[in-house]
Amino acid sequence: MTSTERQNAGLNGQISTRTQPMFHRVLHAQPTRVRETLTAIRTRFRSEVSDDTLGRLELVLAEVMNNVTEHASLADSAADAGQQPSIHISIVRHDTGLACAISDDGVSLPEECLLPRGLPVMDLTDLPEGGFGWYLIQDLTQALCYYREEQRNFLAFSIPFTDQTGGR
């Protein structure tokens, strides 16, 4: 059965209730919370997808959540936890990859983050120490999309399975 047929399978209850591993969490945009969440995601999907897929997933999610942690704070000068954006993250395993949705209530994502980009200029006498995050996100994801609705940023993408054995 193709994925289209499955989606059109209707309400007979047999196919549409097939369970797929999922992950959902709400967290404060804070480095140790991001780390805990990534560790939990690794644990959740470890037996479901290959090490390679898991590694790509973890790297992309780390970059996205680090960006929120570092740049989305509503008041940069305020150190109190009340100013940290709240991140909602959902991941679902599909037949061809892992579908991810991440939202936060921080400041708007600058448009240039989503424009196609290359690596930072490689000046061997003064190597860049940053500017890699969005390149990695764009390089490792498919169907990356973003929208802003009221006070939240929404980012969605998928991490494809690349090996012949699918998710394993």
């Binding site: 590694g55 790297l59 780390a62 680090n66 190597l127 860049p128 120490e129 940053g130 890699f132």
Partner: peptide, 16 residues
């Protein structure tokens, strides 16, 4: 087991 781009930036800073 894991390094992100901020970790990479730290490695680059050490090299420099």
């Amino acid at each position: 087991d894991f390094m992100d781009s901020s970790g990479l930036g730290a490695m680059i800073a050490v090299r420099k």
